[in-house]
Design a binder for these strands. Structure first.
Lengths: 243, 243
DNA sequence: CCAAAGTTAAACGGATGAGTTCAAATACGC
DNA sequence: GCGTATTTGAACTCATCCGTTTAACTTTGG
């Protein structure tokens, strides 16, 4: 049995005094340990040592390993979403469009969004979420609510503005925003082996370009196309009809 | 601490005699236990009991918990891919196109592909893969190779044939196939909370319709559009340039 | 300078589970 | 029918780790 690698700093003094500082130190340490070892293999002892506090302090603050895990996940999701939203606002809120080329702006936005997903921490959080989803079924919903929805909403708002200005032919901005994120991120799990392997800048650029390209093929204005095949085709003829 | 639910059959006699039969029984039992409890919480004792063999037999056959896990994952991926490929061949290989409407055929194929992903087992396998990806970095590649690539290839072949017949305007069938799967499956994690909650037939139909609709908006022929904006836009100006 | 509140470190209790050992049972060759 | 080799099942070893307890210590207020 071999350890995969120890946490670099084995003992980190609690950065500042006061209760909130300790809580933050514990959250940061727990994030690192959970990310590195996974939920089951993460030890409260190691988290406490890394945070520079005593083990009972961890239990005083969070009560439970599962509660600590939930706090870590929600906190990280919140921070991640806030970071993306801030970056998006800086680019989309300001009226200073850096360029008139829509493809370039979409590509820029795509990279902003992916920068979070592509970080080691982002991948690890996603893996943790997947791993414990069956044990904590409501956690995904909460994380999606505080971490995913705001980003999709911001993106949808921008797409709606673009559509209103005639730069895009989008009638359902929510759907288009979700599909945009899906298109630009779709290949990343395979390219990075779920985040366990670095992606080359070239692969990343190519994946984003392919996603943006297809998105524009679907939603660029000018071509006359039926609004949408919204008539839902029959679900599926239940297994092989074989006829 | 509460158990989530016991495996239904607590003791299953090994279906047949012989070595291969026992190996299969162990694999099936291990699949069920891993799916239900996750890698860390799955006990070899329970797997052996469910398979109707002795614990040392498990170690004799697979040597290790990790090796057993890998065998389970690869075996399941292989069977899943074979099932999808077979269903696709039954629909696409035969010259009996059930309908001329391309949207209907795409929707049908989408449901065939998703039927595997949507099963409890399919979701659980994906969660297991995500959960252990950091501990077994090569496992994802092997699973993708035996489970994912064949499906994408089959789909890409079909799309290429459609393009050759002029029914689609696709110049990169591999990319289009990957994007098709991404588009039809993109909303499912959110809708089903990573497979921990059943999806209503209506939601599933709507998600597939949205994906197929966007795919057709992008790749339906007839409209004249630039082949593809394959000129890669600059990656991203490295963080907030803030200029 | 003293007292009270909370925090620390260390050790403990209880439980779980991977992997091994060992005697008994089963299958098989002669 | 007998001896050999393999398989079984149950007990065992060893380690991990959650969560708690206890006693000493630090910090804060008077």
């Amino acid at each position: 049995m071999r350890t995969i690698g120890d946490v670099a700093d084995s003992e980190q003094h609690p950065a500042r005094r006061g209760r909130v500082a300790k809580r933050e130190a514990i959250l940061a340490a727990a994030l690192r340990v959970f990310v590195q070892d996974g939920y089951a293999a993460a030890g409260i002892d190691r988290i406490a040592a890394l945070a520079g506090v005593a083990k009972p302090t961890v239990y005083n603050h969070f009560g439970d390993k599962e509660a600590l895990f939930r706090s870590v996940m929600l906190d990280s999701a919140r921070r991640s979403a806030a970071k993306i939203i801030e970056a998006l606002d800086a680019r989309l809120g300001g009226r200073n469009a850096p360029t008139d080329d829509l493809a370039e702006r979409l590509t820029d936005v795509a990279h902003v969004i992916l920068e979070c997903q592509l970080s080691d921490e982002g991948w690890a959080l996603q893996r943790l979420l997947y791993a414990e989803a069956s044990r904590m079924p409501d956690l995904y919903d909460e994380v999606a609510r505080v971490g995913g929805q705001p980003v999709v909403n911001a993106l949808a708002g921008w797409l709606a503005r673009l559509a209103h200005r005639g730069e895009l032919d989008v009638d359902a901005p929510e759907t288009a925003a979700s599909q945009f994120m899906t298109l630009i991120a779709g290949d990343l799990p395979a390219l990075s082996a779920l985040g366990t392997r670095p992606i080359s800048q070239a692969d990343l650029t190519a994946a984003v370009a392919a996603g943006v390209g297809t998105f524009l093929r679907a939603f660029a204005p000018g071509v006359d196309r039926p609004k949408q095949t919204s008539r839902a085709v029959s679900p599926t003829p239940r297994r092989e009809g074989s006829r």
